[in-house]
């Protein structure tokens, strides 16, 4: 997995609440069997008109926001389906950090699987950052220090330690868990005796 340490750049403001995963990547793009190539379809219905032409005033279609690596968005970002195509499309577009007041659980988790840092801030801080984003002020996201710097603002954020370490080191989660294979096997042996009906295998 790609590492994440720190990130510098302007941030795209998207002041809409409840941005769901259908908005982030509509269903017709879920038919792929690959993880890559979805960036062009990110926010498809907001980005393109019925004829497939770019909608000029959508933020990610305007310069310099079309180069954003950071997104500042309204509350409850990523609600809806579990599709990992949502973080895949964000990442493929170039977004590596999303800032909001809250995230849906599955989306939040999916971000970390793909080297994307979702940051939760207070409503007041979101307002400040949204304004800073609109004014094209450079953001500096510092994961080791857990600070967002943007203009005069310096905002601390929380992140669980294991998630932080995984991002900083780009760790392979499955590889780590396979190190506990003996424990998994022992668990299964124990349950085979205690709950045999669960092992009346399909």
């Amino acid at each position: 997995m790609d590492k994440f340490h720190s990130l510098k750049g302007i941030a795209a403001p998207l002041p809409i609440v409840n941005i769901d995963t259908d908005m982030i990547i509509p269903k017709q793009f879920l038919k792929t069997i690959k993880r890559t190539g979805l960036g062009v379809s990110l926010f498809y219905e907001m980005r393109y008109d019925n004829d497939g032409n770019l909608i000029k005033d959508f933020v990610l279609n305007t310069s310099p926001f079309d180069q954003s690596k950071i997104l500042v968005a309204g509350d409850n970002f990523g609600c809806g389906s579990s599709r990992e195509h949502a973080p895949w499309s964000l990442k493929d577009f170039g977004i590596r950090c999303v800032i909001s007041t809250s995230f849906a659980d599955i989306f939040y988790n999916n971000c970390f699987q793909n080297g994307i840092l979702p940051i939760v801030v207070s409503p007041e801080n979101l307002d400040q950052l949204m304004t800073a984003a609109k004014n094209q002020i450079e953001f500096n996201i510092d994961l080791p220090e857990q600070i967002i710097r943007a203009g005069n603002h310096s905002i601390n954020f929380e992140i669980e330690e294991f998630r932080k370490e995984r991002l900083l080191q780009g760790l392979d989660d499955i590889g780590i868990t396979l190190g506990y294979q003996d424990k998994i096997n022992a668990y299964e042996e124990d349950k085979k005796n205690k709950k045999p009906w669960l092992f009346k295998d399909n």
Binding site: S81, E84, Q113, I174, T177
Partner: peptide, 30 residues
Amino acid sequence: DSHTSTHGAFGALAFGIGTSEVEHVLATQT
């Protein structure tokens, strides 16, 4: 799939996961 929550009607802890987690469960059953 996020609507895995359906199975909770039976008193099973059931939840939706992303594709990376699908791979994790296939490889480790955890």
